[in-house]
């Protein structure tokens, strides 16, 4: 069961990575000054300040605070927010995380659904109009800053044409513009990769053989060529997940999308460290998990690795 060994090792590595991220975030968040100034009215007495510091454990030494933090983390207790009467941070993030997940998934779906057919079409009609158009789209897609694109599509499709809402998360319609702005970069990257992979593989001997056997062109393309061409796409998709989640932060700000990214930025403004801490750890953990999942699925897909891996 070498495969399961591999999965276990990869999971363990993920946990270590999340632990290190948590440590970094803990210490960086402690570099900022006085959270009690945000928790109390301006005219609070020293006694009141002291009570609050005591309650949140801010009087302990940094090491003791870190120890408490780790102990709670192991029990999956992420602490309570400084604001909103001690709501649990993880509960507050739960709602937002659903929105971020929706946005990221929509961006990914947009990128994959458009890029792979377009990449195949471009490779099959190499040097013709389709190819030219696809490559133009890829070049511009990779060079356009997503936040600027977001503002532009808000202006044209929401303000001028009124087809979509300008922001917020109200139903399916409000998801389209942010998802497209978020996914365009990945779309371009996957499209280019599919195209060049297909072009490479279409010249390979086994494709010539498949055609010589008299297989239908459709079968040759989907069963033989595409499977081969999509291998590198899986790798890029893995890194792309991280890029999408990080990119969602900016897109959430542009589109007033109530996700984790915006929560983090709002919480930083309010010096709500427990919230910032938990949110960043949650995002980092999801990226690390996505990377691990891609590594594992890569082993399942690529027969060369599978033969070696499973013995």
């Amino acid at each position: 069961m070498q495969f399961w060994n591999y999965v276990a090792v990869r999971l363990l590595q993920t946990i270590v990575v999340v632990f290190v991220v948590a440590t970094i975030v803990f210490f960086v968040a402690r570099l900022v000054g006085n959270p009690e100034s945000f928790l109390l009215p301006y005219e609070a007495t020293d006694d009141e300040i002291e009570t609050v510091r005591e309650r949140f454990g801010l009087n302990d030494s940094l090491i003791v605070q870190y120890g408490h933090f780790l102990g709670d983390l192991v029990q999956l207790d992420f602490g309570t927010s400084y604001r909103g009467a001690g709501t649990s941070t993880i509960a507050a993030i739960g709602d937002r995380a659903v929105n971020t997940l929706k946005l990221t998934a929509a961006g990914l779906v947009f990128a994959v659904c458009l890029s792979i057919p377009l990449g195949i079409a471009a490779a099959l009609r190499r040097g013709r109009f389709t190819d030219w158009l696809a490559r133009l789209l890829a070049v511009f897609g990779q060079a356009t800053p997503s936040f600027w694109l977001g503002l532009m599509v808000i202006f044209f499709f929401a303000v001028e044409l009124g087809w979509f809402p300008t922001g917020g998360a109200e139903g399916f319609k409000s998801l389209i513009l942010p998802a497209v702005s978020l996914g365009l970069l990945e779309m371009a990257a996957i499209m280019r990769l599919t195209r060049s992979g297909m072009i490479d593989v279409l010249g390979a001997d086994f494709i010539v053989t498949a055609r010589a056997k008299g297989l239908r062109e459709r079968t040759v393309i989907t069963r033989h060529a595409l499977r081969h061409a999509l291998l590198p796409v899986v790798t890029v998709l893995g890194l792309g997940m991280g890029r999408l989640i990080a990119g969602a932060v900016i897109i959430e700000v542009v589109f007033a999308w109530p996700g984790v990214g915006r929560l983090i930025i709002d919480s930083i403004v309010q010096s709500d460290y427990p919230m910032v801490q938990t949110a960043i750890i949650v995002l980092a953990a999801s990226i690390a998990l996505a990377n691990a999942a891609v590594d594992v699925s890569y082993r399942l897909i690529d027969p060369r690795i599978r033969v070696g891996g499973l013995g």
Binding site: L239, V249, I280
Partner: peptide
């Protein structure tokens, strides 16, 4: 790779 640099 796991720490979203933009958040950092």
């Amino acid at each position: 790779l796991a720490l979203p640099a933009i958040l950092f």
